[in-house]
């Protein structure tokens, strides 16, 4: 369970870079933990240490408590570590807007009530043009991203996942309710 989500508003943080892998999001040496907490401070740790533009983008995001990250295609590729989502959320992000997401990352995100907002590459290019300083609103119900300057674009969310986000449901409750069907399946399988 998590807090139901309807809309996310704020000045976005932009990391215009494709194939941002989960090692980059949270380096492996921080995974020796049995908790979900404590990862936010290590978000993009090594990347911000050696690329000044990344450090300044994240410092600015921290300053304005930005809940929106904009990134390039195939965001969250590589390792399955859900720690990447936990780190992004603890840092303060509530969604990532990108042209595409790696499959495991996308599932991990939905499972935590963190929204992977998938927009076409052409819309992404437009968004990059207007992003500086402008505030954005990600509207889950309407499936729309809007800027305070009047720019707007639609995005698709799968129906099931949208319902889960709006209700704050996670899949475990749903699966536990399938107990009888699982039992039937197990009784007939070879």
């Amino acid at each position: 369970m998590f807090e139901p989500i309807q809309r996310i508003t704020g000045v976005p943080c932009v990391l215009d870079h494709q194939d941002i892998d989960t090692d980059r999001i949270i380096p492996a040496r921080f995974l020796t933990t049995i908790e979900r907490d404590g990862l936010g401070e290590h978000l993009f740790r090594d990347w911000r240490d050696h690329e000044a533009r990344v450090a300044s983008a994240l410092a600015a995001a921290w300053g304005v408590a930005s809940p929106i990250l904009i990134a390039g295609a195939n965001f969250g590729c590589g390792s399955s570590r859900e720690h990447a989502v936990w780190a992004l959320m603890e840092f303060g992000f509530r969604c990532v807007i990108a042209p595409s997401f790696a499959d495991i990352f996308e599932k991990n995100a939905f499972g935590n009530g963190f929204v992977p907002v998938r927009i076409p590459a052409s819309v992404h290019a437009e968004l990059m043009g207007i992003a500086a300083g402008d505030s954005l609103e990600v509207d889950i119900d309407a499936g729309e991203v809007r800027s305070t300057s009047g720019w707007a674009a639609a995005f698709e969310l799968p129906a099931f996942e949208r319902r889960c986000l709006r209700k704050g449901w996670d899949a475990l409750d749903f699966l536990v309710d399938q107990g009888p069907a699982i039992e039937r399946f197990e009784s007939v399988r070879v």
Binding site: E82, H83, I104, K107, N108, A171, L172, L175, V176, I182
Partner: peptide
């Protein structure tokens, strides 16, 4: 296939996953 930790919990608890 690989899964995240939330899904590890799903499989531990129900031996199932919700998968597209």
């Amino acid at each position: 296939f690989g899964i995240g930790t939330s899904e590890v919990a799903h499989v531990l608890g129900t031996q199932c996953l919700l998968q597209q």
